[in-house]
Nucleic acid binder design. Structure first.
Lengths: 328, 328
DNA sequence: CTGTTAGCGCTTTCAG
DNA sequence: CTGAAAGCGCTAACAG
């Protein structure tokens, strides 16, 4: 079973190889009649263009590498989805790699990815390994770091300030007058930075339960148990993800604590379920899909030779108050 | 900024191009000394092998295409993750594409994917478009359909019988003696097949609320509202996903219904949170990660020229009874 | 608008 | 164990 190449299509259509190529991928410069003849031939033979071969010569693989810590981090899912879709609309395809919150793995992953000669790279979070950063910078393809902000990105960055989120949350907690405050947080760099901002702005310590990222409901239950041991008078808990907050809510219910009367809970991410819990969850809204779309736009623009400079896009955030913190 | 090729590495190491190639990718047939010299040269020059070029000649791209309806379907996440990881361990990389529950999109996606000359294809769910099936069969690369079972797979299949799940669930419901039964189900083919088995085995109709796939918590709340309208005496609800079940639970709480005393709830998937809800959720356990691992094994084995025949792997399922259905 | 020529970077023959 | 030649399938560059 021989695989059909452009050569076969050209012969079938009675044109030269290059004309067939142009008819299929650059129709502007070929006569209408030949385009149709070539397309017919392609259909008849069942031709599937070999994008590897095309990419080798044209130096454009039409792929973008995406690096995530773990694919199943709920917060990143809308970003990945929007990214995939936006890239697809521009003819690019996303190649996903998991770095697993591990620096060594990050480096080897970058190398593997780069071997496929992607036209761009999107990272969820900042790149941590200096070697990987250096490597990407040297290759010179567009790189977008996301879900964070820095004034020294590898290339471009689109996200928001976790420090500011922490500070804003502290302000929110203070406005409520809560004295016994607890923090349930994942141990990834972004969550820790939010905690740092929170504690600094609060001006005093707060009971903290650390859990392994990615955080989830089960870890949230354990975190509340832990926090209540540290401070039995706990009034409010600030969580580093909505999943974690959900666990806190469930554990509170299991212990007969009412929310928000006995315990107020705040999440992070405004995941799809947050508004529909009972009581509805106060949380921090992040435009996760917008991050993905913006990243795709930046990459595509740069691939098309447009400048774009070194954009640092701050998409901000918003505290969404719902019933889980409503004092009344 | 010139990109470094194997040619440069070979010159640096003082060997021929092909020796350098072998030293890096087929070390068995080269002397120890030259291997080290070449590796040193590769490191010194910062060489990153161009896998596109290699794949073009060797006809092995070392990639596997993965087709999912939508990346964020919680049930598939462990499968994708295990698949990615298992493939990685064998040196393969997953290229993900989203077909969005749409047959036309499925066809065009298959074509795009095939253009990258993957060494194999993994589909979550069965392939629906006959054209896509035909296309894949003709290309002749290993294909694994997952999360379902059929005696006429494109090539191989690893999953379980949704019909049997439905029948087993009906048996479970009957053993409980519930009379007023409701079904909350997503509208994807697999969920509908489970419903079919359920209703058939039950031997009578059941109130049904259909929601759009992928189902989630918010849709679960609405589904329960809908079911209670259809049957105010509702005793038990069978849901097509744990997320949907969670929504049913939340809506029940919001209405002052106790679980399981007033309403029993059953989910599907045994997602990570199911055991940790309060009350813990009765559900159907699927070895989602095992599906991914098995699919990877089958693909890799076949790529290495081993037979494997036309395996149809049934990984089964298991009803896990927890507090959300405990009558006592 | 169409064709010829060259070659992307690598690996598979086939010889030493 | 090492090397020379050939070419994977396609597109850029130049010419007609």
């Amino acid at each position: 079973m021989k695989t059909i190449t452009l050569h076969d299509v050209a012969r079938e259509a009675g044109v030269s190889l290059i004309t067939a190529s142009r008819a299929l991928s650059n129709p502007g410069v070929v006569s209408k009649a030949t385009i149709e003849r070539v397309q017919a031939a392609a259909r008849a033979t069942g031709y599937i263009p070999n994008l590897l071969a095309g990419g080798l010569k044209s130096k454009r693989s039409m792929t973008v590498a995406g690096l995530v810590p773990i694919i199943s981090v709920p917060q990143f899912l809308p970003t990945i989805q929007a990214l995939t879709q936006s890239l697809d609309e521009s003819g690019y395809q996303l190649i996903l790699g998991q770095s697993g919150y591990d620096y060594a793995r990050e480096e080897s992953l970058v190398d593997t990815m780069l071997g496929r000669r992607p036209d761009g790279v999107v990272v969820t979070g900042l790149l941590h390994s200096p070697k990987a950063r250096e490597q990407l910078r040297r290759v010179g393809i567009p790189v977008v770091e996301t879900w964070d902000l820095t004034d020294r990105p590898v290339d471009m960055v689109v996200g928001f300030s976790h420090l500011k989120v922490g500070i804003a949350l502290a302000g929110f907690f203070q406005s409520k007058g809560w004295q016994h405050i607890g923090i349930a947080t994942g141990d990834d760099p972004r969550a820790l930075q939010r905690r740092e901002g929170f504690v600094a702005a609060l001006g005093r310590g707060a009971a903290t339960a650390y859990v392994k990222a990615p955080s989830n409901l089960a870890l949230g239950r354990r975190a509340l148990a832990n926090l209540l041991e540290q401070d039995p008078k706990l009034e409010a808990v600030c969580c580093s993800s909505d999943g974690l907050a959900q666990g806190v809510v469930v554990e509170a219910h299991a212990r007969g604590l009412r929310i928000p009367q006995d315990l107020a809970v705040v999440g992070f991410g405004d995941t799809d379920f947050a508004a529909h819990l009972h009581p509805a969850l106060t949380t921090v809204e992040i435009d996760a899909a917008g991050i993905g779309r913006t990243a795709a736009q930046l990459i595509v623009k740069r691939c098309n030779g447009q400048p774009a400079g070194q954009p640092i896009v701050d998409l901000g955030f918003r505290i969404v108050e719902r019933a889980s913190t409503t004092t009344s």
